[in-house]
Design a protein around this nucleic acid. Structure first.
Length: 284
DNA sequence: CGCCAGGGTCTCG
DNA sequence: CGAGACCATGGC
């Protein structure tokens, strides 16, 4: 209301939620912990948030409804937990990752970030994402980092400039995707009302987007909670679930879709994070 | 230092 | 359809 008023803090109920776990589970890459608060952007809106037991304490430009929507506080965690398969892998991951939410990310920055994720570790995906924001993004009031640059902005740059953000061979793909979206070849808004299979096909027509990246975007930005990204970690876990027998990528993708239940994407995210932090699985 | 990372694409059998 | 080569870069 009053432009000279001190920044106010708001409080939100957040049962069955673990903020740091959610923000460090490899679905979103730009949040930083500063002085007890997690600071980040949702689109071009700044948010600083910390967890206090069953509550979120936050300040910035987001309304309570927007914070709740971003962190998917409305997800029916009882129902989702109950849907996890009754095998040792899934149940161990469920116990270890209680409170992890699959959040609702802005579509373009999710897509762009996962285009740059190919054959990269989580730490480096974060570095590339921050470099792109710093170099091409618009400053945001209160925020140490910039908004993710729009497709139109990236369409204006060139491959060499993107390579200076350490993208390597991914630079051409990000540029090509930005241009296809900027010129209307692909309409990210239109994907919202499409069947998952059709949306996946559309995403896969973009350079640097195959089934794995498309499923990341469907899961993390389009709320398709049954979409299962099969990366090298999930690959190992699926193989172990099947008794360690060798299997093709297509077999493992099919297995994940048939055996992980209606919230397969959730199960996958728990399996991924648990395996990655515990390092209990065979390395090959 | 050698190996690996939240892969995609193209070619060849 | 399935396997291999190739693509850059940094963490460990």
């Amino acid at each position: 209301m009053n432009g000279t008023a001190p920044p106010s803090v708001s409080i939100l109920d957040a049962p069955d939620f673990n903020l740091p776990l959610t923000l460090t589970s490899g679905q979103v890459f730009h949040w930083s912990e500063v002085a007890g608060y997690w600071e980040g952007l949702v689109g071009d809106k700044y948010c600083a948030v910390r967890q206090d037991g069953q509550h979120l304490v936050f300040r910035g430009s987001l309304s309570a409804a927007e914070v709740a929507n971003y962190f998917a506080l409305d997800h029916a965690m009882d129902e989702i937990s109950a849907s996890f398969p009754d095998d040792a892998f899934s149940q161990a991951a469920l116990r270890a990752c209680t409170g992890l939410r699959v959040i609702r990310q802005p579509e373009w920055e999710c897509l762009a970030t996962f285009i740059t994720s190919a054959m990269k570790q989580v730490a480096h995906i974060r570095q590339m994402s921050l470099a792109i924001r710093s170099r091409f993004g618009m400053p945001v009031s209160q925020s140490a980092i910039n908004a993710y640059p729009s497709p139109a902005r990236l369409a204006l740059t060139d491959e060499a400039a993107l390579r200076e953000c350490s993208l390597g061979f991914r630079a051409k793909n990000l540029l090509g995707a930005a241009r296809s979206i900027d010129d209307g070849t692909i309409d990210l808004l239109a994907l919202r009302s499409m069947k998952t299979a059709d949306a996946r096909t559309a995403l896969c027509s973009l350079p640097g987007v195959g089934v794995k990246v498309a499923n990341c975007v469907l899961l993390f930005a389009y709320e398709r909670l049954d979409a299962v990204p099969v990366d090298v970690w999930i690959n190992r876990i699926m193989r172990a679930m099947r008794g360690g027998r060798p299997a093709t990528a297509a077999q493992l993708q099919r297995y994940s879709e048939r055996h992980l239940g209606p919230y397969a994407g959730y199960v996958q995210q728990y399996l991924f994070h648990h395996a990655r932090v515990s390092k209990t699985l065979p390395q090959r």
